[in-house]
Amino acid sequence: MLKSLGIAALIATAFTSGLVEAAEKIIKIDGSSTVYPITEAVAEDFQKAHGVKVTVGESGTGGGFKKFCRGETDISDASRPITQKEMDACKEAGIQYIELPVAFDALTVVVNQKNDWAKNLSVEDLKKIWAPGSKVKNWKEINPSFPDQKLSLYGPGTASGTFEYFTEAINGKSKSQRTDYTPSEDDNVLVQGVSSSVGGMAYFGMAYYEENKDKLNAVGISPKAGAPAIMPSVKAVEDGSYQPLARPIFIYVNATSAAFKPEVKAFVDYYLDNAPTLVKEVKYVPLPAADYAAIKEHFKKLKAGTGFGGKNEVGIKISDLLARVK
């Protein structure tokens, strides 16, 4: 009896589920795991303050855009700009989007704590190490003044936005990098790897370095050989001197949702208003206050489109980016 009731129920719901869903106000967000902590923090507070339900998924930037361009989500978290392919998919489905930078993420190059020689590295040094086909296997090959120590490399997996940005910024070509390194999608594994090998080196988001300062050393980056090296810090990212490894991260808002769903508009406003404090709390770097004001204006005018044209760019200013979208 109970069983047949259950089956009948299943069939009944299969037909009515579509109706039920449409009636409820839920803001659906999915996308990058890098942006996730910020969006989660905003969603948590917004839900408490406004009583509107918010769900956040973590399918990765690419997976998030797939859902976004099918119209399944209102907002997509992205650790890189939308690609040409994704732009086409959205266009085909008639989905327009508003591109909003929400914070900076600073990629940090880390080495073992016993590493007392590589305090600073230049972009050229990093390129020598990470370039596709690079044969560098020992620290002394990078710089003759470095000791004879085996170099072991760790890095994020090839599906991650971090990998994409780092290769673009260092090797000059997105997604091209030497392949003989230990990849992991879990940054904690990279922390483990570098902290247990003296000649280890890895790169990941600054939040992971901040939490593991006692196990790892960060390396100062000089944009050119001979130029002064800049240590990754909130201040250096904010004033734009930590280049080229500081990148903006984004949310993409469905323009139709933003225009016609008041709860989505309220959420994005809340996001931008509270970003300075919440971004800091989850250990990312907030954008300058003037930029947030400009982004709010950008959103208010519902300026749809991307300022990147389907390609990632290193070292772009937020104000320039916003100005590109008419």
């Binding site: 869903e21 969006t39 969603a43 339900k53 973590e58």
Partner: peptide, 25 residues
């Protein structure tokens, strides 16, 4: 999902028909 800070609608309700299937969706 990963972040979801509300529960699905309750399967049992106080008014007839007492059973609610909204939670399934």
């Amino acid at each position: 999902l990963t972040f979801i800070a509300f529960l699905p609608p309750s399967p049992v309700t106080e008014v007839a028909p007492f059973i609610n299937f909204e939670w399934l969706s």
